[in-house]
Nucleic acid binder design. Structure first.
Length: 199
DNA sequence: AGCACGATTAACT
DNA sequence: GTTAATCGTGCTC
Protein backbone atom coordinates (compact mmCIF):
# COMPACT_ATOMS: atom_id res chain seq x y z
CA UNK A 1 0.00 0.00 0.00
CA UNK A 2 2.44 2.61 1.14
CA UNK A 3 4.99 1.89 -1.55
CA UNK A 4 6.66 4.54 -3.63
CA UNK A 5 5.46 4.77 -7.19
CA UNK A 6 8.04 3.18 -9.48
CA UNK A 7 10.09 4.95 -12.11
CA UNK A 8 7.97 3.41 -14.85
CA UNK A 9 5.06 5.54 -13.62
CA UNK A 10 7.00 8.72 -14.38
CA UNK A 11 8.63 7.45 -17.58
CA UNK A 12 5.42 7.92 -19.56
CA UNK A 13 3.88 10.72 -21.65
CA UNK A 14 3.69 13.78 -19.41
CA UNK A 15 -0.04 14.37 -19.87
CA UNK A 16 -0.78 10.86 -18.63
CA UNK A 17 1.48 11.32 -15.62
CA UNK A 18 -0.11 14.68 -14.78
CA UNK A 19 -3.59 13.15 -15.02
CA UNK A 20 -2.70 10.04 -13.03
CA UNK A 21 -1.02 11.99 -10.23
CA UNK A 22 -4.45 13.30 -9.22
CA UNK A 23 -5.57 11.35 -6.16
CA UNK A 24 -2.08 10.06 -5.40
CA UNK A 25 -0.45 10.83 -2.06
CA UNK A 26 2.53 13.17 -1.88
CA UNK A 27 4.72 12.32 1.12
CA UNK A 28 7.51 14.31 2.72
CA UNK A 29 9.50 12.66 5.51
CA UNK A 30 10.51 15.57 7.74
CA UNK A 31 12.79 14.64 10.63
CA UNK A 32 11.20 11.22 10.76
CA UNK A 33 7.65 12.49 10.58
CA UNK A 34 5.31 12.16 7.64
CA UNK A 35 3.79 15.27 6.13
CA UNK A 36 1.43 14.19 3.39
CA UNK A 37 -1.63 14.99 1.34
CA UNK A 38 -3.58 14.05 -1.75
CA UNK A 39 -2.53 15.68 -5.01
CA UNK A 40 -5.50 17.62 -6.40
CA UNK A 41 -3.98 19.87 -9.08
CA UNK A 42 -1.15 19.43 -11.60
CA UNK A 43 0.18 20.95 -14.81
CA UNK A 44 2.26 19.48 -17.63
CA UNK A 45 5.32 21.19 -19.18
CA UNK A 46 6.52 19.35 -22.23
CA UNK A 47 9.66 19.84 -24.24
CA UNK A 48 11.69 22.65 -25.80
CA UNK A 49 8.91 23.54 -28.23
CA UNK A 50 6.53 24.29 -25.33
CA UNK A 51 7.16 28.01 -24.87
CA UNK A 52 5.59 27.86 -21.42
CA UNK A 53 8.24 25.39 -20.27
CA UNK A 54 11.63 26.40 -18.90
CA UNK A 55 13.08 23.99 -21.46
CA UNK A 56 12.41 26.54 -24.20
CA UNK A 57 15.87 27.82 -23.21
CA UNK A 58 17.37 24.44 -24.05
CA UNK A 59 19.79 22.53 -21.86
CA UNK A 60 21.10 24.90 -19.18
CA UNK A 61 22.21 24.52 -15.60
CA UNK A 62 18.67 25.18 -14.47
CA UNK A 63 16.85 22.93 -16.92
CA UNK A 64 19.32 20.04 -16.83
CA UNK A 65 17.14 18.13 -14.39
CA UNK A 66 14.33 17.87 -16.92
CA UNK A 67 16.68 16.23 -19.44
CA UNK A 68 17.65 13.62 -16.90
CA UNK A 69 15.97 10.37 -15.85
CA UNK A 70 12.29 10.41 -14.83
CA UNK A 71 11.13 10.05 -11.25
CA UNK A 72 13.31 12.87 -9.93
CA UNK A 73 12.25 16.21 -8.45
CA UNK A 74 12.83 19.44 -10.34
CA UNK A 75 12.59 22.24 -7.78
CA UNK A 76 13.10 25.83 -8.91
CA UNK A 77 12.99 29.30 -7.44
CA UNK A 78 10.89 32.13 -8.82
CA UNK A 79 9.59 35.63 -8.10
CA UNK A 80 12.53 36.12 -5.77
CA UNK A 81 10.91 34.16 -2.98
CA UNK A 82 8.97 31.06 -4.05
CA UNK A 83 9.87 27.41 -4.63
CA UNK A 84 8.03 25.16 -7.06
CA UNK A 85 7.91 21.36 -7.01
CA UNK A 86 7.92 19.36 -10.24
CA UNK A 87 8.41 15.70 -11.14
CA UNK A 88 10.55 14.82 -14.14
CA UNK A 89 8.71 12.69 -16.71
CA UNK A 90 9.30 10.88 -20.02
CA UNK A 91 12.35 8.76 -20.87
CA UNK A 92 15.75 10.33 -20.20
CA UNK A 93 16.70 12.86 -22.86
CA UNK A 94 13.20 14.24 -23.45
CA UNK A 95 12.82 17.30 -21.19
CA UNK A 96 9.44 17.48 -19.46
CA UNK A 97 7.93 17.69 -16.00
CA UNK A 98 4.71 17.92 -14.02
CA UNK A 99 4.18 20.86 -11.68
CA UNK A 100 2.41 19.99 -8.44
CA UNK A 101 0.02 22.90 -7.89
CA UNK A 102 -2.10 21.82 -4.94
CA UNK A 103 -2.63 19.07 -2.40
CA UNK A 104 -5.22 18.35 0.27
CA UNK A 105 -3.27 18.15 3.54
CA UNK A 106 -3.87 14.96 5.51
CA UNK A 107 -0.83 14.04 7.61
CA UNK A 108 1.49 16.22 9.67
CA UNK A 109 -1.08 18.97 9.75
CA UNK A 110 0.40 20.48 12.93
CA UNK A 111 3.70 21.04 11.16
CA UNK A 112 1.95 22.50 8.13
CA UNK A 113 -0.04 24.80 10.40
CA UNK A 114 3.10 26.03 12.09
CA UNK A 115 4.73 26.84 8.75
CA UNK A 116 1.67 28.42 7.14
CA UNK A 117 0.38 30.54 9.97
CA UNK A 118 -1.19 33.02 10.20
CA UNK A 119 -3.05 31.92 7.06
CA UNK A 120 -6.32 29.98 7.27
CA UNK A 121 -6.32 26.20 6.86
CA UNK A 122 -8.18 26.38 3.55
CA UNK A 123 -5.21 28.07 1.87
CA UNK A 124 -2.35 26.13 3.46
CA UNK A 125 -1.57 23.96 0.43
CA UNK A 126 -3.74 25.26 -2.44
CA UNK A 127 -0.91 26.79 -4.48
CA UNK A 128 2.43 25.52 -5.82
CA UNK A 129 4.55 27.79 -3.64
CA UNK A 130 2.26 27.32 -0.66
CA UNK A 131 2.63 23.56 -0.62
CA UNK A 132 6.40 23.84 -0.89
CA UNK A 133 6.42 26.10 2.14
CA UNK A 134 4.06 23.77 4.00
CA UNK A 135 6.21 20.71 3.28
CA UNK A 136 9.54 22.45 3.79
CA UNK A 137 10.63 21.93 0.17
CA UNK A 138 13.40 24.18 -1.18
CA UNK A 139 16.58 23.97 -3.27
CA UNK A 140 17.78 20.98 -1.26
CA UNK A 141 15.12 18.90 -2.95
CA UNK A 142 16.12 19.69 -6.51
CA UNK A 143 17.30 16.46 -8.15
CA UNK A 144 16.17 14.09 -5.40
CA UNK A 145 15.11 10.63 -6.56
CA UNK A 146 11.44 9.98 -5.79
CA UNK A 147 11.92 6.25 -6.30
CA UNK A 148 14.87 5.73 -3.98
CA UNK A 149 14.15 3.89 -0.72
CA UNK A 150 15.98 6.36 1.54
CA UNK A 151 14.59 9.53 0.03
CA UNK A 152 12.58 12.04 2.05
CA UNK A 153 10.13 12.83 -0.75
CA UNK A 154 7.96 10.46 -2.75
CA UNK A 155 4.49 9.62 -4.09
CA UNK A 156 2.28 6.71 -3.01
CA UNK A 157 -0.93 5.23 -4.35
CA UNK A 158 -4.09 6.96 -3.21
CA UNK A 159 -7.70 7.08 -4.31
CA UNK A 160 -8.38 6.77 -8.04
CA UNK A 161 -10.14 9.81 -9.50
CA UNK A 162 -12.77 8.97 -12.13
CA UNK A 163 -12.75 10.85 -15.43
CA UNK A 164 -15.92 12.74 -14.54
CA UNK A 165 -14.19 14.02 -11.42
CA UNK A 166 -11.38 15.71 -13.38
CA UNK A 167 -11.41 19.24 -14.75
CA UNK A 168 -9.00 20.01 -17.60
CA UNK A 169 -8.07 23.52 -18.69
CA UNK A 170 -5.29 25.92 -19.67
CA UNK A 171 -2.27 26.34 -17.43
CA UNK A 172 -2.13 29.15 -14.91
CA UNK A 173 0.19 32.13 -14.80
CA UNK A 174 1.65 32.00 -18.31
CA UNK A 175 0.98 35.70 -18.86
CA UNK A 176 3.46 36.46 -21.62
CA UNK A 177 3.59 33.03 -23.26
CA UNK A 178 2.46 33.02 -26.93
CA UNK A 179 -0.28 30.85 -28.34
CA UNK A 180 -0.93 28.04 -28.71
CA UNK A 181 1.11 27.21 -25.63
CA UNK A 182 -0.69 29.69 -23.41
CA UNK A 183 -4.02 27.93 -23.94
CA UNK A 184 -2.96 24.31 -24.12
CA UNK A 185 -5.30 22.31 -21.82
CA UNK A 186 -2.49 20.88 -19.77
CA UNK A 187 -3.86 21.65 -16.30
CA UNK A 188 -5.61 18.90 -14.36
CA UNK A 189 -7.58 19.31 -11.16
CA UNK A 190 -10.01 17.39 -8.99
CA UNK A 191 -13.46 18.91 -9.43
CA UNK A 192 -14.55 19.04 -5.83
CA UNK A 193 -11.90 21.68 -5.24
CA UNK A 194 -13.46 24.02 -7.78
CA UNK A 195 -16.50 25.10 -5.80
CA UNK A 196 -14.59 27.31 -3.42
CA UNK A 197 -11.96 28.50 -5.83
CA UNK A 198 -11.62 30.06 -9.23
CA UNK A 199 -11.48 27.45 -11.96
C1' DA B 1 28.22 43.71 -16.20
C1' DG B 2 23.58 44.98 -16.67
C1' DC B 3 18.77 44.11 -17.35
C1' DA B 4 13.96 42.43 -17.71
C1' DC B 5 11.11 39.14 -16.02
C1' DG B 6 8.99 35.16 -13.78
C1' DA B 7 4.81 27.95 -13.86
C1' DT B 8 3.26 33.36 -7.03
C1' DT B 9 1.47 35.06 -2.84
C1' DA B 10 -0.51 38.15 0.46
C1' DA B 11 -1.97 42.51 1.50
C1' DC B 12 -4.32 46.39 0.10
C1' DT B 13 -7.91 49.92 -2.26
C1' DG C 1 -8.98 44.47 -9.06
C1' DT C 2 -4.15 46.12 -8.15
C1' DT C 3 0.47 45.76 -6.48
C1' DA C 4 4.83 45.08 -3.67
C1' DA C 5 8.04 41.72 -2.37
C1' DT C 6 12.69 39.95 -4.02
C1' DC C 7 16.51 37.32 -6.62
C1' DG C 8 18.09 33.54 -9.91
C1' DT C 9 18.19 32.87 -14.70
C1' DG C 10 18.98 33.71 -19.43
C1' DC C 11 19.80 37.13 -22.76
C1' DT C 12 22.06 41.38 -24.62
C1' DC C 13 25.79 44.63 -24.81
Amino acid sequence: MNERLSRTFYARPTLLVARDLLGKRLVRLDEGRRIAGTIVETEAYIGEEDLGCHCRAGLTRRTAMMYGPPGHAYVYFTYGMHWMLNFVTEPQGKPAAVLIRAIRAEEGVETIAARRKPQKAEVWTDGPAKLCQALGIDRRFNSVDLCQAEGELWVEEGRPIAEEGVTIGPRVGLTSVPEPWKSMPWRFLVKELQSGKQG
